[in-house]
Amino acid sequence: MVLVFKTNVDSISKVNRIAPKLNRLFPRTKWNFDLEDCDRILRLESDNDIIKEIILLMKVLGFKCEAL
């Protein structure tokens, strides 16, 4: 399933700060950020419903994140 989130991640340096945690906590998940989109989209491909976990992780890291 493809999960799509609106975030406030607005730079590559912030993506680089988030990346190790996403890779470690969700190793089988493919993800990417679209920083050019007005909603700063985070897309994930996952076999599991991890919406709550992603929102919590982003909040802990200091970012806003809501499922679309």
Rank of each mutant, 00 (worst) to 15 (best):
L61F: 01
I55W: 07
K14Q: 10
F5G: 01
K30W: 08
N23C: 08
L44Q: 03
R17K: 13
F63V: 08
K21W: 14
C38G: 07
K30I: 09
N16A: 09
L57D: 00
K52P: 05
S11C: 02
S13N: 13
E53I: 06
N32V: 11
N23M: 09
R24Q: 09
E45A: 10
L42S: 00
F5D: 00
L42W: 02
K21M: 14
R24T: 13
K64P: 07
N16W: 06
L57Q: 04
S46V: 03
A19M: 12
V60R: 10
R17F: 14
C38M: 13
I50G: 02
F63I: 07
N32P: 08
L56V: 11
K21H: 15
E36T: 15
F63G: 01
I18F: 03
I18Y: 03
V4E: 11
D10R: 13
K14Y: 06
K59A: 13
I12C: 06
F26M: 05
W31A: 08
P27D: 05
I51E: 15
P20M: 02
V2K: 07
P20H: 05
S46M: 04
E36Y: 12
L56P: 00
L56G: 09
L35D: 04
A19F: 10
V60M: 11
V15W: 07
R28Y: 14
